[in-house]
Amino acid sequence: MKNIIEVKNLVKTYKNLVAVDNLSFSVKEGEILGLLGPNGSGKSTTINCLLSLLKYDKGTIKIFGKEMKPDSYDIKAKIGVVFQDVAVFDELTVYENIDYFCGLYIKDKVTRKQYIEDAISLVGLDDFRNFYPKKLSGGLLRRLNIACGIAHKPKLVFLDEPTVAVDPQSRNNILDGIKKLRDDGATIIYTTHYMEEVEILCDRIIILDKGKIIASGTADELKKLAGPKQKVVIGPTLNDVFLELTGKELRD
């Protein structure tokens, strides 16, 4: 399978702080890549660099085989992004919000209408299409946030902690939606703090800390990295691996 994303020697600094330190990785077509790391490890900065929102100091980023630049509109047309912060208009209904963001990608109204219906159905917002965001619960709002990011059926999807602060039912619904996206052929980069989500969803995992890749592989491969203590007791979970690798110190 061909590489959809190729990152080589990416460096991003904020004054004296190295946020991304010589990062290199690739993502294959149809793959779900989990990007794990404690707060401040450089996950969001990496994604913002990949999306050409942030300047970076060194390195190259290729998406769909082409260098990613702010004016790479042909590449952008194939990307969908769900940011950590809910980014919807309070003044628009669920349907209008999805229509607005989908309309930035899809000009044809008939196609767009069908795509919106598909997105609403995917995230389970059929009964809330005429609701305004302020009337939605936290879980429903997160689902709307996702629908706005993926309604145009992108080939590459960035999901930055899409399940933060949602109830188990909504989380389950969101994870099912992501699996459907993968089944439809989308390549996904998924960042989260929830290890069980990564374990369920991701084909491959990269663990970042202090801007560097400290481990990468499948969930099973990573589990082998854990120390013997966890293995003896109950067998290591991905959470154990994560804490062993990144430490138990609290982060911002």
Binding site: L51, L53, V81, F83, V86, Y105
Partner: peptide, 19 residues
Amino acid sequence: QNLANMSSKGKRVSVSPAH
């Protein structure tokens, strides 16, 4: 609402193919 460094909606709009 269109500026990536000012609002989350701006970020979303900025990663779209809209000029």
